[in-house]
Design a protein around this nucleic acid. Structure first.
Lengths: 158, 158
DNA sequence: CTACGTGCAAAAGATTTGCATTCGA
DNA sequence: TCGAATGCAAATCTTTTGCACGTAG
């Protein structure tokens, strides 16, 4: 059932990409569909290197340049979201599939005693953020397209 | 009056650094005080290169390595905060002085029609974020040390 | 056919590291 | 004195760019 749902989603998401490419006048290259499929088969956040290594393992030869290119397109198409975890240390950008999920935010949990190592990333969704968003739009006369909210903390051992 | 207040703050903040270095057993190097002074004389966000160039102009010779080092210390001491503006494009880390300010969040306004160029960054402070924070702490059993919230949008021309 | 997209390698930009030298305690 | 800090340059890591080649339309 789980696998079947994923298969269905895969069919859907490829169609979404097809429509997007058509509308933009971009080409239907096999790389774009293969990368999309890999991303939508994954269950977690990933960065460019993760994706590159995964595809190498599966013997799909795609260059990093193409992955970076493709990710730009997917971002524009709304097929993925970009994140920047790790407030303290510099980390590479992370991404996640976004088409079937609702917008959510992240709680980044650091290992106890370490400022650097991330132990876990938990997703959450609090409706109050919408209220803040609307207030800001009114207060400053802006249209807000998106937001990002991260909480940083540690496990509560007490 | 403005200048006088800034002078007073400078005296205070140097004392804070002195206490911090003492407590940690770190040395009182002139570089650390000079960099701190530059940061606290500034009114806006800055990145490492901004700071480096500024100090070169003023004929203070400080290497970038030392600036990076010092910034780590100031972060740990709570004298500055780190930011990562620019969700779409990669940008260098930004920093700002934090000692006399209360915690605030940011509204990043992009130039109309451009996904890349930032037109303005506005600071705001909404108390509702505290409520969300407390809910998350209870829900997931964590201690939250900090958060970052960014809204991304464009000027409302309507 | 004719660009657009890809792959590869080189370049660029931010940050980190290694090491000899300097200097604060 | 002597270990911590600094400066400089080289190294590293992520992302971007240039160019020759392949291929979708």
């Amino acid at each position: 059932m789980e696998a079947t749902q994923k298969e269905l989603n895969l069919v859907t998401i490829k169609e979404v990409l097809r429509q997007y490419l058509l509308q933009k006048g971009f080409r239907n290259t096999p790389e774009r569909y293969t990368i999309l499929e890999e991303i939508y088969m994954m269950d977690h956040h990933f960065n460019v290197d993760d994706l590159y290594l995964l595809m190498m393992q599966k013997k799909y030869h795609v260059s990093k340049a193409t992955i970076y290119n493709t990710i730009e397109i997917f971002l524009d198409a709304g097929l993925i979201r970009k994140h920047q975890f790790g407030e303290k240390t510099l980390t590479s950008s992370s991404y996640e599939k976004s088409y079937f999920d609702k917008q959510h935010d992240h709680l980044v949990i650091y290992k106890e005693g370490s400022d650097k190592e991330i132990e876990e990333i938990i997703e959450f969704c609090d409706p109050r953020i919408q209220g803040i968003k609307e207030s800001i739009e009114k207060a400053f006369g802006v249209n807000i397209d998106s937001h990002s909210l991260y909480f940083y903390g540690t496990k509560n051992n007490g």
